[in-house]
Design a protein around this nucleic acid. Structure first.
Lengths: 108, 108
DNA sequence: ACAGGTTGTAAGTGATCGCTTACCGTAAGT
DNA sequence: ACTTACGGTAAGCGATCACTTACAACCTGT
């Protein structure tokens, strides 16, 4: 049920920008804020939300905190989406299939 | 870039409930509202947002409107998530790998 | 111990959001 | 044509959210 937190965390554009900023390479709060049009505290708050959703994790490095992507939250979201995808696609196919393949299985 | 709309659409719990209600089987607005603790106009507004995000589609059936899941928006979201997943996991592995392989390439 | 640098948190504010009730348009039945 | 059922939209309201500035806590050199 934690995928809900991941979804609401990734809903905000700025927070998503923070998240995507960490693609591949980790970064400190200040570094992230420098690339975005918002203040440093704003980035800090966004990181807090992302961390709570299991999307990022942090490690201390001296006085700085290096944030990186946590596969945990991303994995939960992916699992939910995949499951949903299979179900939805199956239902969608069945829906479309009806007129295309006039059910001639049972008789006629 | 449309995955942003899908994410913000699925962020709200009620709207997500509306969306998940359509798992497998399509339903009318009234049917959906009957299963949820919100009014019918609320459901209608949620469906509007979901439709705008490409997550649901509707077909007229007499005076009723039957809503069903649209694989389009779900697919875009899935594509973005998969791409992100691969990149993030690769970076995460490389990150963990570093201490295991103490960098002895450039002298000592 | 002091100074400079980096981060988290508190308080306040303007905007957005989700919900409700009320109303209007549309489709089917008598 | 009138009635009944169904759904979208407008208006308004309370709550949440994202952002800012100000402040406190922490670590590192000198």
């Amino acid at each position: 049920m934690a995928y809900g937190m991941a979804l609401s965390a990734l809903a905000d554009p700025t927070r998503r920008a923070v998240f995507e900023r960490l693609r591949g390479k980790a970064a400190s709060v200040g570094e992230i804020a420098a690339d975005l049009p918002v203040s440093r505290p704003a980035v800090s708050q966004h990181l807090k939300a992302l961390k709570l959703a299991g999307l990022v994790a942090d490690r201390s490095e001296g006085a700085r905190r290096i944030y990186h992507i946590d596969p945990l939250g991303l994995g939960e979201l992916r699992r939910w989406l995949d499951e949903f995808w299979d179900e939805a696609l199956a239902a969608f196919k069945k829906e479309v299939e009806v007129p295309a393949t006039p059910r001639r299985r049972k008789q006629a």
